[in-house]
Amino acid sequence: MKIPRLVIVGGKLALICTVAAVVLGLVNAVTAPVIVENRERALAEGLAAVAGKAGVSGAHVGEASPIADSPAAQTAYPITGGNGEGIGFILQLIGTGYGGDMQLLAAYHPTGELFSAQMMENQETPGLGKKAEAPEYMDMFIGSGAESPIPTSMSDLPASQADAITGATITFIGVGRALADGSELVRELEGLSEGGTQ
């Protein structure tokens, strides 16, 4: 019996795909645990870095709580001082940048005032939006969120800071909006926890 040509071609393609899939599976089996470990280490270092700027000795980051019903925030971590008093929250935020989603860690006082933030995973343009990974980039947002709103457009910034974000405005707006949403969420969380203790 003659095997149809279509079956032969299909069989060869299936064989090549199978070999490729098996080898990629093996490579993934080797690299996946290392990638997960890298992510966890980066998260732990990020949490320690942002909590460390609370200005309180012995600041401790509590267990993660998932946040439902918020497009910007994924997880909240309570921060407590050495005596167990509540200092604020760290939120794991998602902003939209030039290259898609940007993950941020942001620490707020219970009033919603941002006191520390750090850019995590992102796909922003090297040399432009990637500048948001520099710790000093977040200086333009720190201290706002309670008495003054978090800047979300270039017009909210003084001229010197506006010049610094030239070429990466979309990144700035994405970061600003995510941080502003986080600030609002912290005030809601604080309102809920106060309500719960009354």
């Binding site: 990629l24 690299t31 990638i35 980066a42 343009t125 090297p126």
Partner: peptide
């Protein structure tokens, strides 16, 4: 398929063993 196969390997290896470079290169 062959090209994609090698690119995925490069991507995974960079993510696992050179995460900073992988982060900088992004997409």
């Amino acid at each position: 398929l062959i090209i994609a196969f090698y690119v995925i390997i490069v991507d995974l290896v960079l993510k696992a063993f050179l995460p900073e470079i992988s982060k900088n290169l992004g997409p």
